[in-house]
Write a protein that binds this DNA or RNA. Structure first.
Ligand SMILES: [Mn+2]
Ligand SMILES: [Mn+2]
Ligand SMILES: [Zn+2]
Ligand SMILES: [Zn+2]
Lengths: 137, 137
DNA sequence: AATCAAATGCAACCAACTTGCACATTCGAG
DNA sequence: CTCGAATGTGCAAGTTGGTTGCATTTGATT
């Protein structure tokens, strides 16, 4: 009985323990996770090496099973790509630094690019206070 | 006769040579510049030290005379804040890595945040090919 | 001109990755 | 099931981009 992670990974390449567990962690996360956060969540025997985790994350992104966004602490935050194929906006809390995916928020951009530019994708990041920090303030 | 840069800086603090020249460079730039690009543009006598440039850039950002955006090479890109007060979107070329400010592009976001989130500002970054790279492809 | 908070220069430091290479694992062919 | 080539992992060392602490200099107010 293969896990959801394994089913997602197999069509793209080898399902190694590290890849399985990292993707599982990302799938179960409520917010975008930094390398350090993921590492902390991992069992000690899976992926005893930081470098492997970096490579696993890169691989997941390259296969579009995850995506990464730049935080203001110059570290990447990762999360699994759901069925929506990353068609969602992100919320960056300026107090706790956390990044949340706003799955339900499908913004209606109305814009046209200047001539010469070729569009590929758009990323909307909203700054403000997350529910927890908003409450505390 | 004070330069434009000096006039912008003075209300916020000391107009030092480094601050003047860096802001001048940013004001004259067509795209967001990395630390290294700015340093290359600077005369050798102004700001002989990397650290000072970092501090000048941070200061300009803290006074809202410049803003910075994270590139995918984990380096910040800076540009001067014009009269629009950074109410513009950015275009990130996935081929050359350059970041352009789309001053004329004032996107109409239509969204409402989930309950609990407090809005502060939004940043829209569009991915694709810039005119130069689009041509070359 | 004197003053002094604010800015700079230097040296060392740090975190977040990246690279190179030997060794281990996966998984499909036989 | 076994084997072996392709693929992934572990370790050590290196690089990049940015910080910190502290002594010295400097801008602008008096
Ligand atoms: Mn997301
Ligand atoms: Mn801009
Ligand atoms: Zn928060
Ligand atoms: Zn380009």
């Amino acid at each position: 009985m293969a896990s959801q992670a394994e089913l997602l990974i197999r069509p793209h390449g080898r399902a190694t323990p590290a890849r399985r567990r990292v993707l599982e962690v990302l799938l179960g996360a409520a917010h975008a996770m930094s390398h350090a956060e993921i590492e902390a969540e991992l069992e000690t025997d899976v992926c005893p090496d930081r470098v492997t985790l970096y490579r696993v994350l890169d691989w997941l992104v390259s296969k579009r099973l995850a995506h990464k966004i730049a935080g203001d602490d110059r570290a990447w935050r990762f999360n699994a790509v759901a069925a929506d194929g990353h068609g969602h906006a992100h919320f960056h809390c300026t107090r706790c630094g956390q990044v949340y995916c706003l799955s339900e928020l499908q913004p209606a951009f109305a814009f046209s690019l200047p001539p010469g530019y070729r569009f590929d994708s758009a990323e909307l990041t909203i700054q403000g206070l997350c529910p927890r920090c908003s409450e505390a303030a």
